[in-house]
Every structure is written in structure tokens, then in C-alpha cells.
Design a protein around this nucleic acid. Structure first.
Lengths: 136, 136
DNA sequence: TCATAATCTAGAGTTCACTCGAAGTCTATC
DNA sequence: GATAGACTTCGAGTGAACTCTAGATTATGA
């Protein structure tokens, strides 16, 4: 079975080896095995697990909470409900983030057209009369 | 014209007064006026500007870059192009974030259904044979 | 009027997530 | 067997964005 070194994994996941060692130190990678001489040896399944960790991180979950999840995984079937609940909660969070991002996008697009008009007019003053103009 | 105190604005924007003072210290609020005794007095337009700042912040823009934008605003029409370019760039960034979030959502939804199945079976082992099962 | 609450500044402290340096060990190649 | 380069740990350092404290001043309500 093919295994990977820390820098190979780092490259694959667009992280640094420093970051992976930091994750390990924080307890996010208890599953990664070592060679007889102590060097980390990553399996494909470890890389998949790290992708899940990256996914959780991208939802804004702090590392300590991700560690809880990893611990639950080690605890086996007894924690299945907790893990399910956690992902359902994350789902709701991501849905909220999508809503937020949509609002952000609306404001940004508004600003884009605001500045486009201003640029065409050569001055921002074109928007100063927004409230009294009848035809814009 | 109605004005607001720092804590009223903080409440409205879901920030703390500390945070607003920090933004001020970092140069994000040069437009906010003071009373004769030095107390900040926020206008409606200041709150709108702060909402734009919050919007930029939510796209991941660091405070120092937001400050650049605020400085450009003070510099007037000469910086219109810069400001337009900046918002267009932000738009591309938000589009990328939306894509990312969609991928995140997919993985999370996959995990939700994974754990739902596992819960129904009472064990995660139900997924161990994923690759050899013909009918799932 | 006077107590309480809110404001101010300056600067120190906190948290998070890395990021790096030092010093040593392992491994692949010549 | 030597050397270069990647790996190890431990612990310190960094940067961003707050967050709070202290001490002074100002505003508000009974």
C-alpha cells in the first residue's frame, strides 16, 4: 500500500509541513502511523481524513472543536449520534454562510455598478443627487 | 439630524464598542465626528460606511487593505478607478468563495448521509464494505 | 446635586493559527 | 563512508484582530 511523506501530503493539500505537524501536535492526526525511526507515514485514508479536517476548518470550526470530532471518531460507534449532530449543525452553519455571502455579493455588485457609473461620469458627485433625480 | 453613540452603533452592527474604537484607531473611521467634549457622534451615513467595511471584512479582506480603500475614499475622484478595480477584484474573490462553500457543503451533506446510514445500522461498519457491495 | 453609567485614551493582554529556528536524526546517492 | 537534504521534537516568535484595564472625563436620571 502506497504511503506518503509529510511534504508530499502538504503539497497535495496546499498546506505546509509545519502546518501538518501543528495539526498533529493539536491532536488532529492520531491515526497517522510512523516508521520504526519515527517518521510519519501517511496512507490514502489519512489524506481523506485530512480533507475532512480542511472541510471543517473552511466552515470556520476552530481546531479544538475539530479535535473533539477526531476524538469521537476514535471512540467508535458510541459517538455516532454526536458526529451526526455535529455535521447537521455544520450544514446549518454553511447554509447561513451561503446566505451571508449572497448578501455580501449584492452589496459588492452594487458598489461595482456605483463606481462604474462614477467612472463614466468622471466624478462620484453623479450619485449625490440619487434621491432627487427622477430618471437615472 | 439623528446621531448615535458608539454603543448604539455597536449594537446595531453586532460589534462591541471596543471593536469600533479599534477600527477607529486603525484608521477605518476618519469620517466619524466628535462632540465638543470628544465623544464620537455617528451619523446614518457613518453606519452605512461601517456596513461596507463589514462587507469587505466578511470577504476576508484584512483591515490594512480596508484602510487603503478608506484612504482612497478621502482622496476623492482621482482614486475612482482604484476603488472600482478593488470591488471587481472582491467580486471575483467572493465568487471563488461561493464555489468553495459549495464544495464544502457537498462533503458535509455526504457526511450527514453517511452518519444517518450508520446510525440506522447502529454501526459505522455498514460503510466498510462500500466498495464490494453491489446494491447499497 | 450627586450617584451611576457611559464615554474617552493609551497601552497591555489574549487568542488563534500558524511559522520558524535550533539541534539532532534518518535516508538516498555518490 | 561521507554528504546533502528531508525528517524529527521542542519551544519560541509572529501577525491579525480583537479585548480589556486603568484612570480620567462626561452624560444622564432620581
Amino acid at each position: 500500500m502506497k504511503t506518503y511523506t509529510i511534504s508530499e501530503v502538504a503539497k497535495e493539500l496546499n498546506l505546509t509541513a509545519y502546518t501538518l505537524r501543528y495539526y498533529d501536535k493539536e491532536g488532529l492526526m492520531p491515526f497517522v502511523e510512523r516508521t520504526a525511526s519515527g517518521i510519519r507515514s501517511f496512507k490514502e485514508s489519512d489524506i481523506s481524513a485530512l480533507k475532512v479536517i480542511e472541510c471543517l476548518k473552511s466552515t470556520g470550526m476552530p481546531i479544538k472543536e475539530i479535535k473533539n470530532f477526531i476524538d469521537w471518531c476514535s471512540d467508535g460507534d458510541i459517538t455516532l449520534q454526536k458526529r451526526y449532530d455535529m455535521f447537521m449543525e455544520r450544514k446549518a452553519i454553511v447554509e447561513a454562510q451561503m446566505e451571508e455571502l449572497k448578501k455580501t455579493m449584492e452589496l459588492i455588485e452594487h458598489k461595482c455598478s456605483y463606481y462604474k457609473t462614477a467612472l463614466a461620469a468622471g466624478t462620484e458627485d453623479i450619485h449625490k443627487e440619487d434621491k432627487i433625480e427622477i430618471i437615472t
